[in-house]
Amino acid sequence: MTYRLRAAKPGDLEHLYEMAKLTGGGFTNLPADRAALTRKLERAQKAFDRKDDAIGDDQFVLILENTETGEVRGTCQLMTMVGQQWPFYSYRLNTLTQHSQELDRTVRAELLSLVTDLEGSSEVGGLFLHPAARAGGLGLLLARSRYLFVAMHRKRFADRILAELRGVIDDRGGSPFWDGVAGRFFGMNFQEADYFNAINGNQFIADLMPKHPVYVAMLNSEARKVIGVPHPTGRAAMRMLENEGFAAEGYVDIFDGGPTMTARTDQVKSIREAKAAAITSTTLEKGEKALIATGRLDAFRCCYGLREFGEDGSISIDANAAETLGVGIGDEVWSVAR
């Protein structure tokens, strides 16, 4: 079976909705709400339609489809500049050191401070792979195709990029972090807050959240031990981000305490190593395994394939990749080693 990434269309609403129902909560970028998903697709369409290269408040949605059956089996998103519609809040985990001369004692306390440090960054997020398709490297194709999209539209993205990983969710669908921190101030459980945030944004956090730092030592043990810890299903995603050059720098999600990974955009491995080249052959049978992409904005497509560079900088690709992408001799493709 052959899969490719493409731009999402308004007709993908039901595909997204069916996948959203499988996320299990804590997945703000893919709410199981048709109206919210419709707005997301409309916003993505506006982003794809805007032809100038200036950075703006855009959101792109990509779809993973089986080219043989037309089945949609995954999705991912890119946000070009977070914190424009409403503040982009994070908790920053830092340390306060205090010393008493009388007691000859130094005390170090960990604090969670509500910050908007990451406003203006780009974000990769919203990645979901259907449970029936979690094999064959499709998760890697979903994740890394976003970096090729960034490389191909570099001027539309910021110099810093982030990725939020879902935090620990318990068997009841609740969040130990939310229950121990923010839930005390809002009078709603995690599912209610998470859903409200996905549909309406997080301005309610600014309205009601205390602005003073939270001393970690004063939280219950269940909340403390999940700070900066990804959901078990997100550990592989965290390793992939680390392999790309992202790092956890003390920022955690205000809802579930999951880690926010950051990197300099131009230092992300798949962006830094992406190469553009014109095709001189589409009959390659042996070559380097790669992600190969073509097309601007709503014409973007990406798939796995084989590549080989010529001495003149041109590229040869295999017939299957050429057919999947709809490209031929003379067309330009971008690629990065798999």
Rank of each mutant, 00 (worst) to 15 (best):
M238W: 09
T294V: 12
L41N: 00
A321D: 03
L148S: 01
E102Q: 15
T69E: 09
E68F: 11
V333Q: 01
E244S: 01
T23I: 03
R272K: 12
E311L: 12
S122M: 08
Y89S: 07
A299D: 14
L291P: 03
A276W: 10
D312I: 06
F48D: 03
K21R: 15
D171M: 11
A193S: 06
M240D: 09
G56P: 05
R73F: 11
A263V: 06
M218N: 13
Q77H: 05
D117H: 10
F27K: 00
D194H: 08
N202I: 11
Q84L: 06
Y147F: 14
R73W: 11
L64M: 12
F186P: 09
Y195H: 14
F60Q: 02
R160A: 07
D104N: 15
A36M: 02
G167E: 03
E288M: 10
A337Q: 10
Y147I: 00
A143Q: 09
F128M: 00
P210R: 06
T2D: 13
A277H: 02
D57P: 07
R184Y: 05
D170V: 02
T97M: 10
T97E: 12
D104E: 15
K269D: 11
R50Q: 13
T265V: 02
M238K: 14
A158M: 09
G74D: 00
K51L: 14
F186H: 12
D253Q: 07
L141A: 01
L103H: 10
L37M: 07
L140Q: 12
Y251W: 14
F27H: 09
G287N: 08
K21W: 07
F204R: 08
R301M: 06
F255A: 01
Y215F: 15
D104L: 13
G139W: 08
S270D: 09
L306R: 00
D49P: 01
G139F: 06
W334K: 05
C76Y: 04
P259A: 05
S145T: 01
G180Y: 02
R184H: 10
V229C: 04
G183A: 09
C303R: 03
E192K: 13
L142G: 02
F255R: 03
T69P: 07
Q59L: 13
L165V: 11
A248V: 10
G245F: 06
M81N: 14
I199G: 12
C302V: 04
L142F: 05
R224F: 03
G126I: 00
R39Y: 12
Y251R: 03
I199Y: 13
E332L: 08
R108C: 09
G330M: 06
E42D: 12
H130N: 15
A274M: 02
I279Q: 11
E249S: 07
S281Q: 09
T106E: 14
V72C: 00
E164K: 02
I205M: 08
R39P: 05
K21Q: 14
H130F: 00
A319H: 12
E222W: 04
C303T: 15
R73Q: 08
T116F: 05
I161V: 10
Y147A: 05
A247N: 08
S281P: 00
E311D: 15
N29Y: 10
E273H: 10
G287E: 04
I169S: 02
